[in-house]
């Protein structure tokens, strides 16, 4: 080694070159590229928002129904009558079901990976959970429609029999489980990976000294989790859930494949029927005329605003988290 070092120095270019530094040009190119990318992003966002708003305004100005309360979607009729009430209901309900199922399971998996599983087991489990995110949503849709729906008949009957008195789980229509409830379960599986991996990261960041504080007081593993890990991770789990919610709200193909759509608001979530924004657009876009498409775009604008709102809320919570994370540095 020692003998080769001097030759390397000999071959190195002189430190002070008389000409222009190549580094300067690289700096400018890189600065331009990154600035351009940033501007491009804003332009794309603005053009999406502008396009949606413009086309939506055309549709809304001609709508004979009430856009918010009409239980109907006849945008191609004359006069056009359409409203998003059913879609908003279906979207929110299926997402709430998805969250109610996915978040506890995801937190459980994340805690298992971060605090319970032996290292040899933790890595493969984390990998499998991440793999769930790589499955295309149309595959989830096909699997949901052909496998999950028939499998859920038994569960539906059971829920109807024992929880039917709650109204929500009262199954009033016979027929296969192409319901909002099934969609919720499918969405839960789809958002599981994102919620799990973000929660896992947060749990792994819990300062060692916070956990040791609990341990040294004679806390069991569960008590350590309750005293140090969950309080530290709470806001992280919330923002992870928001990210999952954002995905559940906008999911299209899986919902469109599983749900048997109808334009009714039905609080009995086991009954087939209902609809979501994305599913409705996917189902109707091809066959709609020019105006019908504008109407669908108006509903898309509402979905866009809804996801913006959810993501904004997630951001807010992440920002608030800063106060907690430093603990007592």
């Amino acid at each position: 080694m020692a003998s080769t070092t001097p030759t390397q120095i000999d071959q190195a270019p002189p430190v002070t070159s008389s000409g222009r530094s190549t580094g300067r040009a690289g700096d400018k190119i890189f600065a331009g590229l990154s600035k351009g990318s940033g501007i491009l992003l804003l332009v794309i966002m603005a053009s999406i928002a502008g396009f949606l708003t413009y086309r939506a305004s055309i549709a809304l100005s001609k709508n004979e129904g009430n856009f918010l309360t009409t239980f109907d979607w006849n945008a191609s009729a004359n006069p056009p009558v359409f409203g998003i009430a059913v879609l908003l209901f279906g979207t929110v309900v299926s997402s709430i079901i998805a969250m109610a199922i996915a978040v506890p399971i995801a937190v459980g998996i994340a805690l298992f990976i971060s605090h319970y599983a032996p290292r040899k087991l933790a890595a493969p489990i984390a990998y499998v959970v991440d793999l769930l995110a790589a499955v295309p949503s149309i595959i989830y849709g096909i699997w949901g429609a052909l496998f999950l729906v028939p499998q859920l008949n038994g569960l539906n009957l059971w829920l109807d029999e024992y929880l039917g008195w709650t109204y929500v789980f009262d199954k009033t229509q016979v027929g296969v489980a192409r319901s909002l409830f099934t969609v919720g379960i499918l969405l839960a599986i789809m958002i599981l990976p994102i919620v799990t991996s973000v929660s896992r990261e947060v749990f792994l960041q819990v300062p060692r000294m916070n956990e040791e504080a609990a341990l040294a007081l004679g806390a069991t593993r569960w008590e350590v989790i309750r005293m140090s890990v969950l309080p530290f991770g709470r806001s992280g789990v919330i923002s992870a859930s928001m990210l999952g919610l954002g995905r559940a709200l906008g999911e299209t193909m899986a919902v469109a494949t599983v749900l048997s759509p109808s334009f009714l608001i039905n609080g009995h979530i086991l009954d087939p029927g209902g609809g979501t924004f994305a599913q409705n657009i996917a189902a109707k876009f091809d066959e709609a005329n020019e105006f019908g498409r504008d109407a669908l775009i108006a509903s898309g604008l509402v979905l866009f605003l809804l996801t913006l709102l959810v993501n904004g809320a997630a951001r807010l919570i992440i920002a608030r988290r800063k106060d907690f994370s430093g603990a007592n540095a």
């Binding site: 504080a213 004679g218 806390a219 069991t220 005293m227 530290f232 709470r234 907690f324 007592n328």
Partner: peptide
């Protein structure tokens, strides 16, 4: 766990439960 309930410990860096 029972041992740690009878033998208390104070750490190098103060570590109150932040929340």
């Amino acid at each position: 766990v029972a041992v740690r309930r009878t033998v208390g410990m104070v750490f190098q860096r103060p570590n109150p439960f932040p929340t």
